Simulated scan of single mutants.
Amino acid sequence: MARHFEASQATYTRWIAAALDAAPCLDRAGTGGGAHLVMTGDVAPDWASFPALLSELENGNTPEITGIEDHELPVFIPRWTRNTPVDHRALGKIVRAIHRECGLRLRYVSMKRGEEGRWRCIYPIGLERMGDQWRLVALDLDKKDLPLRVFVLARILGVDDSPCPLPKGFSKPGIHDADLSVHARPNPAMTPDQAIVTAHELRIHDGKITLNQRTLFEFYRRFGSQPLSDDAVWPPLMNSMENG
Results as ranks from 00 to 15, higher is better:
residue 80 W to V: 05
residue 65 I to P: 03
residue 78 P to Y: 05
residue 83 N to K: 05
residue 64 E to M: 05
residue 76 F to P: 04
residue 92 G to V: 11
residue 77 I to C: 05
residue 92 G to I: 08
residue 67 G to L: 03
residue 77 I to P: 02
residue 89 R to G: 13
residue 92 G to N: 12
residue 82 R to Q: 10
residue 63 P to A: 01
residue 62 T to C: 00
residue 84 T to H: 14
residue 63 P to D: 01
residue 71 H to S: 09
residue 86 V to D: 03
residue 65 I to N: 09
residue 63 P to M: 00
residue 90 A to G: 00
residue 69 E to F: 12
residue 61 N to H: 13
residue 71 H to Y: 15
residue 63 P to T: 04
residue 84 T to I: 06
residue 87 D to T: 06
residue 78 P to T: 00
residue 71 H to P: 06
residue 72 E to P: 03
residue 63 P to S: 02
residue 65 I to E: 12
residue 78 P to D: 01
residue 75 V to E: 01
residue 82 R to L: 12
residue 61 N to S: 12
residue 77 I to T: 13
residue 71 H to W: 15
residue 76 F to A: 07
residue 69 E to N: 15
residue 83 N to P: 04
residue 85 P to A: 07
residue 74 P to A: 14
residue 75 V to D: 01
residue 75 V to Y: 01
residue 61 N to D: 11
residue 76 F to R: 10
residue 83 N to C: 06
residue 75 V to M: 03
residue 75 V to A: 01
residue 91 L to E: 13
residue 92 G to P: 12
residue 72 E to C: 05
residue 79 R to M: 04
residue 73 L to D: 02
residue 77 I to S: 13
residue 86 V to L: 08
residue 77 I to R: 15
residue 84 T to Y: 08
residue 68 I to Y: 15
residue 75 V to W: 08
residue 67 G to C: 03
residue 77 I to M: 08
residue 79 R to G: 03
residue 78 P to R: 00
residue 64 E to D: 08
